[in-house]
Amino acid sequence: MSRSPARVDDAACPIVLVALDGSPAAATALPIAAAVARQIGGRLGVLHVAARAVSAPDIARALGLTGPDWESIPVRVEVGDPVERILRATEDPDVALLVLTTHGREITSGERLGSVARRIVARAMRPILLVRPGPAAGKEAIAAEIRRIMIPVDGSEVTLRALGPVLALAGRLGAEIDILYVVEPGRAPRRERGGMTLPRYVDQPQHEWPEWAREVVDHLCACAGQCVPGRHPRVFLARGEASDQIARVAAARQVDALVLVRSSRLEPGHGRVLLSLLTSGPCPALLVGANLPVAEPTAAPERAEAAADA
């Protein structure tokens, strides 16, 4: 399929906005945010939301944003509810990406996401790069550029439609794309009319698989309304529990970011695969939200939700 190159948006100099709460954990998002901003030819914006007024230079000093690399970075300080402030800041049409850590100062024991991150993830309409702080995703490791992005798909058209902004961002990053199709044993094939399925019949694998891979890419383009960037997007197939397989293949392919589509509001019992990968994924997650209905589903089976999240 021939299409014009993807763009993040019309912004000549898009903003990569990193949201901080003053904690060292949150600050680990800074290097990767800076790297992404450089990579897409955009600019870094730092948003600090605090409970009380504090000056931007003080915050910059507190965050260690000193020295020639950091002095030119605008630091915006806002007072109020961090979720509302951060979400409002992402309404700026120039914001191409929000970067934040899975948690900042506090995280409830047993939770995978901090409360702020969870609420933002559940509501944000912009792509979010969600970085896990701590040694498992150390500062040096995540400061590298994003050169390979993996998009796990389950064939759902709703999921595929949500990927337009990610593909646009990937195009701007110049990243190569791996598409991973996961087959979960025991799960029925999707019956969606616009969905993508594995071929039921593989008459001759030497013909069927290459053509299927091509069709997956084309189908993703058609649903997302964006071409898949990169010269050779590759399509992989894995069989097994979705989050395990995604983590396994992502690690094996040494991907720099894993695209996850949020198709629920992450109420209890929903978003199993997504939350699992945020916790145990081998790399930062690039989240996008599917267009959810206003009335949130309440009785959807967990399995279906989990699959869509993958």
């Binding site: 087959v183 979960e184 044993p185 999707r190 399925t197 594995l198 071929p199 019949y201 593989v202 069989r239």
Partner: peptide
């Protein structure tokens, strides 16, 4: 035992 099944058996 593999039903419902979304892939050919050699994939499974």
């Amino acid at each position: 035992a593999f039903e419902p099944r979304a892939a050919p058996m050699d994939v499974m």
